[in-house]
């Protein structure tokens, strides 16, 4: 589907409150948004779905602020990023993220998708910002400029996070026999 049809669908939702148009947008973008959260939460499906739902609801309520400066997907990622970091902040205030990261091994052992274990273990070696940059860059094929727009970080900072993340991942892959 082209960006033009995204804009047309957004217009349908804003002007005519056409829920079917929004449903089409949700169906189109649910997979990348949920995948984004799945990687940020290191495979916590339930939490990912909750955060993805919150993202779409925020997108719906703030759809009038979509100025078409970026494409709809990038705008949605920006909301998803903010939702995730709001969640991180509230979580850090209560339990601390360290506990969550320490649970990765337990969670991945119970995960039904065996081959996904390695990706989550690999991503768990990265800091949050590195993980965000790495997954947006390699999984969602976004450019550094777009990642910068989504995260609000300067391009130089994104490059630094990517570079450090790559080094850590390369080390992880070597240690785990990915030659």
């Amino acid at each position: 589907m082209s960006p033009l049809s995204d804009i047309a669908l957004v217009a349908q939702v804003v002007v005519f409150n056409n829920k079917r148009a929004f449903d089409t947008l949700v169906k189109k973008y649910q997979s990348p948004v949920r995948r984004f959260f799945l990687h940020q939460t290191l495979g916590d499906e339930e939490l990912s779905d909750d955060l993805a739902q919150e993202t779409f609801i925020k997108a719906y309520t703030h759809l009038t602020s979509f100025k078409n400066m970026s494409n709809f997907g990038t705008w949605l990622y920006r909301i998803a990023y903010n939702v995730f970091y709001d969640y991180i902040r509230t979580r850090k205030e209560t339990t601390g993220l360290e506990d969550w990261e320490a649970n990765v091994d337990c969670r991945t052992e119970q995960a039904p998708v065996g081959e996904a274990i390695d990706i989550y273990r690999g991503l768990s070696t990265l800091k949050e910002e590195e993980r965000t940059c790495i997954t947006l860059f390699y999984m969602e094929d976004l450019s550094i400029d777009k990642i910068s727009g989504i995260t609000g970080m300067p391009s130089g900072t994104v490059k630094s996070h990517l570079s450090r993340g790559k080094e850590k991942l390369a080390h992880f892959l070597k240690q785990n026999g990915y030659e």
């Binding site: 829920k19 169906k27 649910q30 997979s31 949920r34 799945l38 690999g122 390699y138």
Partner: peptide, 23 residues
């Protein structure tokens, strides 16, 4: 190697009622 590793683990997630719950 990183690119291949990441791409190998990139998969589409089936809707499975997610959009219905959002709506």
């Amino acid at each position: 190697r990183i690119r291949q590793f990441m791409q190998a683990h990139k998969h589409e997630i089936a809707d499975n009622g997610f959009s219905r719950r959002v709506m």
